[in-house]
Write a protein that binds this DNA or RNA. Structure first.
Lengths: 336, 336
DNA sequence: GGTCGCAATTGGAGCGCTCCATTCAAGTGT
DNA sequence: ACACTTGAATGGAGCGCTCCAATTGCGACC
């Protein structure tokens, strides 16, 4: 299909230097004279040389690659995480690879093995479920987000889920809502959100909360839990969903129950995903600030990979993004 | 961080065989006796040995890895593509890596380079935009979906976009709709869908079509084009959107215009994504059958990588998934 | 002018595998 | 009993790099 790729030796002879010098140029070492560097770079361009990562990885026993494990590609918050992570590590010569633990079905393990056999230098876990094989992978591991997984030597970098739920509660109570609902699901982040939401609501005399949990954290789970919530507490005027996807389900449950958003019931999501920003939902949502979290993950990793001691940065402060799905309850002035 | 990973030599001596035999077991060659195979496998398990892909790739000058390039992780149809692709190639020992050409911003090129330097054995292009550097990569390339990119030696594997739009048109016309709208966007697939939709509608005397295009194919583009469509052709009773995401935008435009779905206007999407299946939209959508397309992509690739001649399979036949967003227009019986 | 120091450059020894040619063991046929 | 075939197992040569120790060139310093 093609006439053998050029190697470092071809570049070296074309530039009239040794292969070692070419290698130094590739790693842009400071100890190469400008003139030789230029001629090597010219040779690289002329030959269309592309370094072999397999050879580099083998020789250096280091791949300069970071693997990111996500649960499920449909759970979009990883997109922002990735953006932040990449912009932090790519300038330093690291590449990022993503893989999902879900879509492959039973082979969650396979994705992990895939990364490990690719000899990634570090792993970012942005997934709730993790394959059986506990750690002991011999590489830095950062857990992104608050999760149930408990990896011995991993550093956790996350947004402040509790604070996010608190912001949502304060917003709703500030608007005048007193009969609140919460739709939650499995997972550590959901638990933190639910606990904090409950605590904050409890701190306001006269405010009551009803919580219903879905079996998962998808749209259908939000719909299901939302339906139950509305049946069991028909008088609520505001709902916080554990994430935007579940909020979509809750919105459907509300429509079926004949309750308008935001006139009858205010709805708040979590993650500030593209869905929240859609014109149809126009959903007030807690921005988890995935890009910032991703940047922090990158910073921790660079520090760690550079031989430093990894330290978990402070939790990233979330922000409330107010949109059209929340407003004061009917007769708020009277209740106020 | 860890005491040196075991190599093939360690396994060999633990199992009392030669490194070559271990290598044969790893590639599960048929020419290994059952008894030796068992003892090698035992040694592998005991040592926790994990083969180095870098070394294997270097030695074999073949990585047994397929790279998939997607536009944007938020465009979910790739998830199904991936599922089909993986189930086709993983049993044959290939691994799949995904990368996006968009989120990195300017460095669309970077993702491509990343894959090429990883020495992937083949590339699947599931993206509309492609980095400048045209082909000449020396590896099999399959384009998934109908796209504008024109790669010299690439094989195209796609669903039948034209037939999909035809199904949608027939469905709507069959329900009695005569004043139709279409919201489209850039890209080859959208063009094929729009052309076919227009052709099919034109084939029905008395049916008229208004088309508006968005600047892109996202929710906001659907909202924008949908708003213009409703302003310019206020009497339409049915709309086909070029994809589900745009349909979400169109749904918002409809709500703002005070038109109910499906009572006033029927809405059809394209892709049958999770969004279409959500309870809120409950969107009738053309199922592009991404899993099947992915499987075909895998089959073509296996054939190609096995030394055979690549042949584009017939276009995958789409299916119309009828849901709650379409119904006969008001007074259909009279019009019928 | 000799020697030291430093920066720039180089050759060589692997990294952990695969693949090929070869050897070895055990039948087959005559 | 002998060469001959076949299947199983092995050693060696590399794949294309990185890294280290060694070498070279050259101005500075006494």
């Amino acid at each position: 299909m093609s006439e053998k790729r050029p190697t470092i030796y071809d570049v070296a002879s074309a530039a009239g230097v040794s292969k070692s010098l070419v290698s130094l140029v590739l790693q842009d070492s400071p100890k190469v004279s400008a003139v030789k560097r230029a001629s090597v770079e010219r040779a690289i361009a002329e030959l269309g040389y592309r370094p072999s990562r397999a050879a580099a990885t083998l020789a250096a026993s280091r791949s300069r690659t970071i693997g990111v494990l996500v649960d499920d590609f449909t759970n979009l918050w990883f997109v922002e995480l990735l953006k932040g992570l990449r912009s932090a590590v790519e300038p330093r010569g690291y590449r990022v690879l993503v893989g999902d633990v879900a879509s492959g079905g039973p082979d969650a393990q396979a994705t992990l093995e895939n990364f490990l056999s690719l000899e990634v230098d570090a792993l970012v876990i942005a997934a709730e479920v993790l394959p059986a094989a506990a750690s002991g992978w011999g590489i830095p591991v950062v857990v992104a987000g608050n999760r149930t997984v408990d990896l011995p030597h991993a550093v956790v970098v996350a947004g402040d889920d509790g604070r996010g739920a608190e912001l949502a509660a304060e917003h709703l109570i500030g608007l005048g809502h007193r009969r609140l609902g919460h739709v939650t699901g499995p997972g550590e982040a959901a638990r933190l959100r639910a606990d904090s939401f409950a605590r904050t609501v409890a701190g306001h005399p006269g405010a009551v909360l009803t919580v219903r949990a879905g079996a998962g954290t998808l749209e259908a789970d939000g719909y299901d839990a939302g339906t139950r919530l509305l049946r069991d507490a028909p008088d609520i005027t505001a709902i916080l969903a554990a994430n935007d996807t579940m909020a979509l389900g809750v919105a459907a449950a509300l429509r079926e129950a004949g309750r308008a958003v935001p006139e009858d019931v205010s709805l708040v999501g979590f993650d500030d995903s593209p869905l929240a920003k859609s014109h149809l939902l126009d959903l007030t949502s807690v921005d988890y600030r995935g890009v910032v979290v991703g940047g922090e993950v990158g910073a921790v990793l660079l520090q760690w990979l550079g031989g430093g001691n990894p330290a978990a940065p402070p939790q990233v402060a979330p922000r409330l993004m107010r949109r059209g799905s929340t407003q004061p309850p009917r007769g708020a002035a009277a209740q106020g």
